[in-house]
Computed example of a mutant assay.
Amino acid sequence: MILVIISIFVVLVWAKIEGGLRYNWRWHVIPNYIFRYDESQGRWMAGTLFNGLLTTIRICIYATVFAVILGTILGVARCSQTLVTRMLARTYVEVLRNVPPVVVIFIFFFFLSEQIISALNVEGWARGIARQENNGIWLFFFGDMRQFPSLVSGVMVLALFESAFIGEIIRAGIQSIPKGQTEAAQSLGMGTLDLLRFIILPQAIHKVLPPLASQFITLIKDSTIISLISVHDLTYSTVELVVSTHAIFEAWLSTAAMYFLLCFGMSLFFRRLEKRGP
C-alpha cells in the first residue's frame, strides 16, 4: 500500500514538472558522473558522484567510531557520583542538543578543527603522501589525500556533534542496569573500572544497540551538513554536478536515491542483527 502511494506521488510530481515547468530532462549525463570510461588509461573510473558517496561512507564510519568512544565517556560521566563530572558532561550534551546543527558545525570547524589541522600541519603531510607513487593503502582508506584535511574536519565535527546524542543513549543503557548488580559487584571488592568493564557496559551496550543503530542512520543523513564546510562528500559533489551541467532534478534525484539505498541498506542490516540476538 505504501509503495502504491509513493508511486502515485511520484507520477503526480513528474506530471507537474512535465506540464508546468516544461523541464528538459537529461538523464544521459548522470551515468558519466557515477562511472566513466577513461580512454587514456583504458579502464572504468569512479565519477564525481560515486567518489562523493565513498567519501560520505568513509566519514560516517570514522565519525561513528569516534562518536561512540566519546559518547561512551559522556554516558559514563553522566552517571558519575562526582557532581562536577556530571555537570560538565550534562552541559556538553545539553548545549549540543539544543543548538542548531549548522551552527555547531561551523563553531567546531572554525574554532577547533581548523586550529588542530594547522597546528599539526596535516595539509602538508597529506600532500606529501599524495605525491608518492605507492599510496594505494592511503587511497583505499581515505580517498584523495589532497582532500584529507577536509575529511578530517568532517569526521571531527560530526563525531563531536553526534557524541552528545550517543552519550544520552549510553546513559539510558547504564541506568537501566539493576542497582543490585552494582551493589553485589562492589560487595565482592570489584573496583569502578572493572565494574564498568565487566558488568555494566557489556549489558548496557547490548540494550542500546537498536537506538545506536538508528543514530548511525541519522548520522548518515546529518553528514549532508558538512558540505557547508567544503567537505567533498556526496552532497558537495552533487552541487558541483548541478553547477557544471545544470541538470538540477536529475542530480538531486540521483543523490536522493543513493542516500536512500545507503540508509535503507543499513536499516535492513541492523534489523537482521537485532533478530539474531546475542
Rank of each mutant, 00 (worst) to 15 (best):
M1P: 09
L3P: 04
I5S: 12
I6M: 10
S7R: 06
F9W: 11
V11E: 07
W14S: 08
W14F: 11
A15N: 05
L21A: 00
L21R: 00
L21H: 01
L21D: 00
R22I: 02
H28K: 13
V29I: 15
Y37M: 08
G42H: 09
R43W: 06
R43P: 05
W44H: 08
G47W: 01
G47T: 03
T48V: 14
T48P: 03
F50C: 05
G52A: 07
T56K: 06
I57R: 04
I57H: 00
A63D: 03
V65F: 13
A67T: 04
I69N: 12
L70Y: 12
G71V: 08
L74K: 08
R78L: 11
S80M: 11
L83Q: 15
T85K: 14
R86E: 10
A89N: 04
Y92R: 03
V93D: 02
E94N: 01
N98W: 09
P101M: 14
I105E: 00
F111A: 15
L112W: 07
Q115T: 12
I116S: 06
I117Y: 09
I117P: 02
N121T: 11
E123L: 07
G124S: 13
R127Q: 13
I129Q: 04
R131V: 12
E133Q: 14
N135Q: 15
I137G: 04
F141M: 05
D144R: 07
D144V: 06
D144L: 08
P149C: 02
V157M: 04
E162S: 08
S163P: 04
I169A: 05
I170C: 03
R171G: 02
A172F: 03
I174Y: 03
S176R: 05
I177L: 05
E183C: 05
A184P: 00
A185T: 01
A185I: 04
G191R: 03
L193D: 06
L193I: 10
D194T: 13
L195Q: 14
R197N: 08
I200N: 09
P202M: 09
A204W: 09
T218H: 07
L219F: 04
T224D: 02
I226M: 08
I226L: 03
S227Q: 15
D233C: 10
D233L: 05
T235K: 12
T238P: 13
V239E: 15
V239H: 13
V239G: 13
L241H: 08
V243H: 15
L253T: 05
T255C: 13
A257N: 00
M258E: 02
Y259H: 01
L262Q: 01
M266F: 10
M266W: 00
R272G: 12
R272E: 10
R276D: 03
G277L: 04
